[in-house]
């Protein structure tokens, strides 16, 4: 086990290096000139060259990458061209908001998914079951911006239950979390339904039910412990899905997280921020995958860590 984890960590490192190289190549192939952006409209050609030199943009690409990579080792993600601030500071200042949103989303996913899934399972093949399952599939199929806008207008603007936009209190967190979590909730509902049905088939559960064991207890005592591991594995994989979702959801709800930072950086071709965010996101995804893989053998003993 420790050997496996170590090997995976080395692999992760290689993956991240690969990600950084590819992102570096792509961002530097973008058709915009950072030196001119920094130097401003009034700059003469000489001033632009000066800036190019100062920011090391006149070096050959491999050398630029080496400079960047050296910085990375020291935890330096470079400086934003636009904000003139350390990228690591910008990301660090926004990471908590995004993590909070992700936590909220995971909570919503589980709450919605587990409840809906077990309800459907207990009423298998009834209209309720079908309704829940179609609903789940519907949320899996709905573009997140539609969900986000609908929640915003219905619950904030019309009903006034939640603040329109912003960050800071619990009520600010609710709608963005739901918007981000509904999609995953659909998946969890489907998964929960099948694992509940499986448990319900088992003899001892049938007996227990006959004896009058409540549904909630069955779910808590018998279904969840078995279903927990696949859920953990799925949460690990969720991180990748969230990375896309936050760009849309954060912008609709004015959530001060990584997603908005990323989108602004892309609009202004602020390469160091794009690089930094991609790397941080890649780290998160790789760690999430590792988590999922570590959990896998616990779920199914036939799977061995090699």
């Amino acid at each position: 086990m420790p050997g496996y984890v170590l090997r995976r960590l080395v692999q992760m490192l290689l993956t991240l290096i690969g990600v950084s190289v590819i992102t570096f190549l792509i961002t530097h192939a973008l058709p915009a000139d950072p030196a001119r952006q920094i130097a401003g409209r009034t700059a003469s050609a000489a001033q632009v060259e000066q800036v190019r030199h100062q920011f090391g943009l006149d070096l050959p690409l491999p050398q630029q990458y080496l400079r960047y990579a050296t910085g990375l080792i020291e935890g330096d993600l470079g400086r934003s061209y636009v904000q003139r601030t350390d990228v690591s500071f910008l990301i660090a200042s926004r990471l908590p908001a995004t993590l909070l949103l992700m936590l909220g989303a995971i909570f919503c996913e589980l709450l919605i998914g587990l409840t809906a899934g077990s309800v459907a399972a207990f009423r298998r093949n009834t209209a309720a079951d079908q309704g829940v399952m179609i609903g789940a599939l519907f949320f899996v199929s709905t573009p997140q911006f539609l969900v986000a806008y609908t929640l915003l207008y219905v619950f904030s603007n019309w009903l006034g239950w939640f603040p329109l936009s912003g960050y800071g209190t619990f009520s600010h967190l609710v709608l963005p979390s739901v918007a981000l979590g509904l999609l995953g909730g659909g998946w969890y509902a489907r998964m929960m339904r099948s694992s509940t049905i499986e448990v319900l088939r088992q003899d001892f559960v049938r007996t227990a039910r006959a004896k009058g064991l409540s549904r909630t207890r069955i779910v808590l005592v018998h279904v969840l412990p078995n279903g927990l591991l696949p859920i953990i594995a799925m949460i690990g994989l969720d991180i990748g899905y969230f990375m896309s979702g936050i760009v849309v959801v954060e912008s609709v709800f004015g959530w001060p997280g990584i997603g908005q930072l990323t989108w602004q950086a892309i609009q202004t071709i602020d390469i160091p921020i794009i690089m930094g965010v991609t790397l941080v996101a890649a780290c998160a995804i790789v760690l999430g995958n590792l988590l999922a893989d570590l959990v896998a053998p616990l779920i199914d003993p036939r799977i061995k860590l090699k």
Partner: peptide, 22 residues
């Protein structure tokens, strides 16, 4: 100062000594 990389530096080119300083 070129180290500041100010987008407005270009405006002040008329000040005596600007080129040498840049």
């Amino acid at each position: 100062n070129p180290d500041t990389a100010s987008p407005g530096a270009g405006y002040y080119g008329a000040i005596k000594g600007f080129e040498d300083f840049q």
